[in-house]
Design a protein around this nucleic acid. Structure first.
Lengths: 187, 187
DNA sequence: GAGGGATGTTGACACTGCTTACTTCTCGAT
DNA sequence: ATCGAGAAGTAAGCAGTGTCAACATCCCTC
């Protein structure tokens, strides 16, 4: 009966993973500011200091969370590129905005100025990797092409942010997907 | 000699204004997370609880700060509109991005998801007022015109955010003003 | 000049991230 | 099989925070 009396083993098994999962849920519910390590530990069922075995600090945990976000983002973008759609730039734009809307809290965390402040190399690397595909499409051709691609990127990113902030109001009966498509299609 | 021994009077005079000024400085230096009420009170030279006579909470102070930001933003946009430039949309876009770059920390605070979370009516009103001019230019004409204007807004806002985050790297010898102009001019 | 309301102070509470010293468990070398 | 190194988790506590209630002080009006 050494391991029993409570059915939770002494060692959690995969605490790091469990922490990140719970942190994502908590992030979606309460935002970045509401993500406390104590609450997190409580949610997973371990002591307040246990997370420090896996993350040096709260910032490190947030960074790890953002890194997983960038990895998912990279996967989504690569999937689009691999499917070789007729209009690559438009399709990637659609996927870009959709990712932002589907993973609102995570997307905001990925671009959080807080994390950028203490610039952790891991985040920077993940972000660079995520944008590698975009940059490839972007910088491929002439100088005027670079400007056009930068403009397209800015438009897509701005659209995502404004939609996320509820700054763009839908007209009655308007479909958001159609709106996104129309704006991205607009040259 | 009742008020002396320390040359600081009991009443500060205009504490609310002084707090907002100091908060702006602190915001620019340390970011939103580094803006503590205690530090702020210390910087102005009052007790830790004194700010509560003027702001119900830390969030209320941040809101007030963001509101002043929207007011300055409104003034900047109106100034552009009043000058009746040849290409109104392009000129407002330039002013939009320039404001963001000149007031980086404040701009970020204005669009901070933290503040939007507990949606304070004052912020919402200030933001609506700020975008009134934009919406006027935007929604003026036909439906297709609305799409075009939304696309322009998204592009300008995205450009501002990406530049603020250092996501758009300048090529060697490239002038940032020229780049902004080129991207905004791109249709 | 004596209230009275606004303004600022003091002290304390609950909470946070974080650290240190300690216990408990796992696992590979012997 | 055992036993010791080190990983995993615990408990206690530090400094710092936002916030509040009670008290002190000033200014302004009647």
């Amino acid at each position: 009966m050494s391991t029993s009396l409570s059915n939770a083993p002494y060692h959690h098994g995969n605490l790091r993973h469990a922490l990140l999962d719970a942190a994502l849920l908590m992030l979606q519910r309460d935002g970045e500011a509401g993500l406390g390590l104590r609450d997190l530990a409580r949610a997973v069922g371990v002591s307040p200091a246990a997370p420090y075995r896996h993350f040096d600090s709260r910032a490190a945990l947030l960074e790890a969370l953002a890194v997983t976000g960038f990895q998912r983002f990279t996967a989504a973008m690569n999937a689009v590129a691999a499917s070789q759609p007729p209009d690559l730039l438009a399709a990637m734009g659609q996927a870009y905005v959709r990712f932002a809307l589907d993973n609102a809290a995570l997307f905001r965390l990925m671009f959080s100025p807080q994390l950028k402040r203490d610039n952790r190399p891991g985040l920077r690397m993940a972000a660079d990797a995520a944008f590698a595909t975009l940059r490839q499409v972007r910088d491929g051709d002439s100088a005027s092409g670079r400007i056009a691609a930068l403009a397209a990127w800015a438009k897509v990113h701005g659209l995502a942010v404004l939609l996320l902030d509820g700054q763009i109001a839908l007209q009655p009966g308007e479909d958001i997907e159609a709106l996104i498509g129309a704006i991205i299609g607009q040259h």
